[in-house]
Design a protein around this nucleic acid. Structure first.
Length: 477
RNA sequence: GCCUCCUUAGCUCAGUCGGUUAGAGCGGCGGACUGUUAAUCCGUAGGUCCUUGGUUCGAGCCCAAGAGGAGGCGCCA
């Protein structure tokens, strides 16, 4: 294959007056003369100028929307205002035709719902290519952040024999013949004949295994797929999503909050620094879409301004008890603007979290020290005996992006909490033994990867920031 | 799991009180133009009004069931 130059390289260091060969797909062909070509390497297109009198008419007709072409020509300064350089085409080859009469995408704004059903084509659009470039950037930045700080990447298992995490409904993993399920003499499923000789599921969290790592390697993180079989139908939930779970020995809840805040700010900064064109495009895309919307439906701030604001300001840190008081004393609550009643001991509803973030503080909020009864068994009991050292990081628009805690390192207290919450201690003997032998204070959290990408890209639906979303009733592609 | 809304041309939608031949923009196709940036201008084709059943002289419109989709809530990341 002839050597090609990537569009991003041409745009960043233009080899003016040199002959270049570019290969990519047609985003637009205007006036039978100007091709906007993209090849995935940049959010920007490269303008190809075609002197149509010099080319065969049949060839020109095949330069249609999303057709794949190779162009050789001289790179020159552009005469137009929309771009700095352009290629004067000397030779054009059609690598892959795209018959516009039959092709399902069109050069116009199409709805996210329509494009979601065309997942094999949607990545070709400007919006989705920007989203997935940024998604890659966030993933890379996660590894870079932890690697640069001496953390070890720990691979927690995807198939788990434990169903005690309590993080949600699980997907069963089995090789049993579902048409003829073997039964025990009691009539229950005989899992001793299954592949693992016991019931197994897809993981809902790598946290408990990460704790094993933290108590040996000091600082670890997991970053992998997790699965929840909840029948969740919202723009913030997926059945298959990716989660980052750092776990750190000798960290308490304060250290944990510092880490969470520093971490997410780093990720946003990384994208702002390395993907400015993509962020600018998505920012403009949202502004264009909001032109036809009422004032109250628009975002309070543009995407770029929101990201800069989050990076430049300290997150608000309050306790659960303070949060309850703020909400109960708010004029909105007194006027009955909230759907759900609130009282100490009840979990904050989405509307309460949104009020704290978007109305009260107008910035990300970390809420800590929740009542023990509404949180998981492994969270460390505070001295008041009523609350646990849990923390949630709440973001505007998408709510909870991080949930974490200082873990209960005291064997007796942990055992007691497991009994209180009906957790079978025999299932988690290994977890208890971590406390019995060489235990120490430690803490960690889980960051929802797609929720983070959703926030950074400003996409309204989490299904549009993962290439192939899995949701109830949908596992296409 | 619960609640609400939607389904009309390839796409996005309009369609009045139930009334004759189903409307627009974009896209496609044909042509004109040629330094465009969502190019522009002229012309043109394109419809199982989601499906099934019902009410009615008459249904895109009303009723019922089903299918598909979206939004909100809960669960959480």
């Amino acid at each position: 294959m002839k050597k090609r130059t990537e569009i991003s390289k041409i745009l960043s260091h233009p080899p003016l007056q040199a002959e270049v060969t570019v290969m990519g797909w047609v985003r637009a062909f205007r006036s039978n003369r100007f091709i906007a070509l993209y090849d995935g390497s940049s959010a920007k297109t490269l303008q190809i100028v075609v002197n149509f009198e010099q080319f065969d008419e049949n060839l020109l007709k095949k330069i249609s929307f999303h057709a794949c072409i190779a162009v050789t020509g001289k790179l020159v300064e552009s005469q137009g205002v929309g771009q700095t350089v352009e290629v004067l085409a000397q030779h054009i080859e059609i690598l892959g035709e795209s018959n516009p009469e039959a092709y399902s995408l069109q050069p116009k704004v199409q709805t996210m719902e329509f494009l979601r059903e065309k997942a094999h084509f949607r990545m070709r659009t400007a919006t989705f290519s920007s989203v997935f470039r940024i998604r890659h950037g966030v993933a890379y930045a996660i590894h870079k952040y932890y690697n640069d700080r001496g953390y070890y990447y720990l691979h927690s298992p995807i198939i788990t024999g434990s169903d005690a995490e309590g993080a949600g409904e699980m997907f069963r993993v089995t090789t049993l013949n579902l048409d003829h399920v073997p039964k025990t003499s009691e009539g229950t499923v005989d899992f001793s004949l299954d592949f693992f000789e016991k019931p197994t599921n897809l993981t809902v969290s790598g946290q408990l295994q990460a704790e094993i790592g933290a108590l040996a390697l000091g600082k670890v993180y997991t970053f992998g797929p997790t699965f929840r079989a909840e029948n969740s139908n919202t723009s913030r939930h997926l059945a298959e999503f990716w989660m980052i779970e750092p776990e750190v020995a000798f960290y308490d809840i304060e250290d944990n909050m510092d880490l969470a805040e520093d971490f997410v700010k780093y990720l946003i900064n990384y994208v702002l620094e390395h993907f400015p064109d993509d962020v600018a495009f998505l920012d403009q895309r949202i502004k264009d879409a909001e032109k036809n919307m009422k004032q109250e439906e628009r975002r309070p701030m543009g995407l770029l301004d929101t990201l800069r604001f989050v990076v430049d300001n300290a997150f608000e840190r309050i306790t659960y008890t303070e949060a309850i008081e703020l909400i109960l004393n708010s004029k909105e609550y007194k006027k009955g603007k909230f759907e759900f009643e609130l009282a100490w001991g009840k979990d904050l509803q989405a509307e309460h979290e949104r009020w704290l973030v978007e109305k009260c503080f107008k910035k990300p909020v970390i809420v800590r020290n929740y009542p023990k009864d509404i949180k998981a068994f492994y969270m460390r009991l505070n001295d008041d005996g009523q609350t646990v050292a849990a923390m949630d990081v709440l973001f505007p628009g998408i709510g909870e992006v991080i949930g974490g805690s200082q873990r209960e390192e005291r064997y007796d207290v942990l055992l007691q909490r497991m009994h209180e919450m009906g957790i079978d201690e025999h299932e988690l003997l290994w977890y208890l033994e971590l406390r019995k032998f060489g235990g120490c204070p430690h803490a960690g959290f889980g960051l929802g990867f797609e929720r983070m990408v959703q926030f950074i890209t400003g996409m309204g639906n989490i299904r549009d920031v993962i290439p192939f979303p899995r949701t109830p009733g949908n596992a296409a592609f």
